[in-house]
C-alpha cells in the first residue's frame, strides 16, 4: 500500500509539472490556434537560466534562500522575454498565412533554440543545484514525499489559483477570453489583440519557467534536450484535457502524470514514454476534443 501511495504522489508531482507547461500550450492554442512547438524549449531555457544565475550567485557567496528567489525570478523574466521574442519573430508575420506555415515555423524555432543552447553552453547533463532546502518539520513524512515534491505541489496549486483569478477577474484576462472567442470581434470592441497575444506568450512562458526550475531542482540535472520530451508530454496532457481549456489542461496533466507513474511502477520503466504517446493516440482517436473540450463544427 505504501508503494501505491508513493507512486500516487510521484504521479501528482509529475502531473503538476506537466500542468505548468501544458497551460502555456493551451492558452496559446486557445487564442491563435497554434501548437507552439517552441514552448518546451522556453521551459528548458528557463531551467538553464536558473542554473546559470544560481551558480554565479553561489560563487559570489549569497545565502540559499536569496539564490532560490533570484534564480527563479531570473528564469521567469528570461523565459518571458524569449517567449515574447519568439512570437514576434516566428509567429506574428504569419498571422494570416495558411495553418501549416506557423506550425512549421514553430518546429524550426524549437530546433533553433535547442541548438542555440547546445552550442552556447554544452551538450552534457549539468548537475542542477538543490535550490529547495529539506524542511525539518517535514522529516517524518519525507519517506513518502520529498520536500521538493511538497514544494512543487504547493507552488503549482497556488499558481493555478492565481491564474484562474487572473483570467476570470482582471482586465487582461477578460481581453484574453474575448480574443479566444472571436479575434476580429474583440478587435472591433477595442481590444489590442497583438498586445493580448504577446501577454499570453509572456504568461505561458513564465509558468513554463517555474515548471523548469521546480523539476530541475527535483531531478537534479538538465541538458539542452529536456524541453523536447517535456513539451510533447505537456502537449499530450493539454490535448487529453481538451486543448484550449484551462481546467482541462490541469486535469489532463494529472491523469497523464498518474498514468505514467503507475505504468512505470507496475509494468516497466523502459516504455515510460511509449505509454504517454499511446495515450495521446488513443485519446485523439476516441475523443478528439479531449475530456473537457467541446467539439465545434467547422463553419464554411
Amino acid at each position: 500500500m505504501e508503494y501505491f501511495f508513493e507512486l500516487f504522489l510521484g504521479g501528482l508531482t509529475r502531473g503538476s509539472i506537466y500542468a505548468l507547461i501544458a497551460l502555456g500550450y493551451t492558452m496559446v492554442y486557445g487564442i491563435i490556434e497554434l501548437i507552439n512547438f517552441a514552448h518546451g524549449e522556453i521551459y528548458m531555457i528557463g531551467a538553464f537560466t536558473a542554473l546559470i544565475v544560481a551558480s554565479v550567485l553561489t560563487v559570489m557567496g549569497l545565502n540559499e534562500f536569496a539564490i532560490l528567489v533570484l534564480a527563479s525570478i531570473a528564469a521567469a523574466v528570461y523565459s518571458a522575454a524569449y517567449g515574447y521574442t519568439v512570437e514576434k519573430i516566428a509567429y506574428k508575420p504569419l498571422r494570416h498565412a495558411p495553418r501549416l506555415s506557423p506550425l512549421i515555423s514553430a518546429i524550426g524555432m524549437s530546433i533553433f533554440l535547442q541548438n542555440y543552447v547546445l552550442l552556447a553552453q554544452t551538450s552534457d547533463f549539468l548537475p542542477f543545484p538543490s535550490l529547495i532546502p529539506d524542511f525539518e518539520f517535514w522529516e517524518p513524512y519525507s519517506h513518502l514525499l520529498r520536500s521538493t515534491q511538497l514544494v512543487i505541489l504547493v507552488t503549482t496549486t497556488v499558481i493555478m489559483v492565481l491564474l484562474t483569478l487572473l483570467i476570470k477577474y482582471t482586465k487582461i484576462g477578460k481581453a484574453m477570453r474575448a480574443t479566444a472567442q472571436d479575434r476580429s470581434m474583440a478587435m472591433l470592441v477595442g481590444v489590442n489583440v497583438n498586445q493580448v497575444i504577446s501577454m499570453t506568450f509572456v504568461i505561458g512562458s513564465c509558468l513554463a519557467a517555474v515548471g523548469g526550475v521546480l523539476i530541475a531542482s527535483h531531478i537534479g540535472q538538465i541538458n539542452f534536450f529536456i524541453g523536447f520530451i517535456a513539451g510533447i508530454k505537456a502537449f499530450t496532457a493539454a490535448v487529453l484535457g481538451g486543448v484550449g481549456s484551462i481546467p482541462g489542461a490541469v486535469l489532463g496533466s494529472l491523469i497523464l502524470g498518474l498514468t505514467e507513474s503507475f505504468a512505470t511502477g507496475y509494468v516497466s520503466s523502459d516504455y515510460e514514454d511509449v505509454f504517454a504517446f499511446a495515450l495521446l493516440v488513443l485519446i485523439l482517436i476516441f475523443r478528439p476534443a479531449g475530456l473537457l473540450g467541446r467539439s465545434t463544427m467547422q463553419k464554411v
Binding site: I89, P98, I104, G108, M109, I111, Q114, N115
Partner: peptide, 18 residues
C-alpha cells in the same frame, strides 16, 4: 551549426518565402 541553420531556415522560409 548544421541543425541551428536548419531550424533558422524553416522559420525564415515560412516568413519570407513560403
Amino acid at each position: 551549426f548544421r541543425m541551428l541553420i536548419f531550424g533558422a531556415i524553416m522559420v525564415i522560409m515560412m516568413v519570407f518565402r513560403p
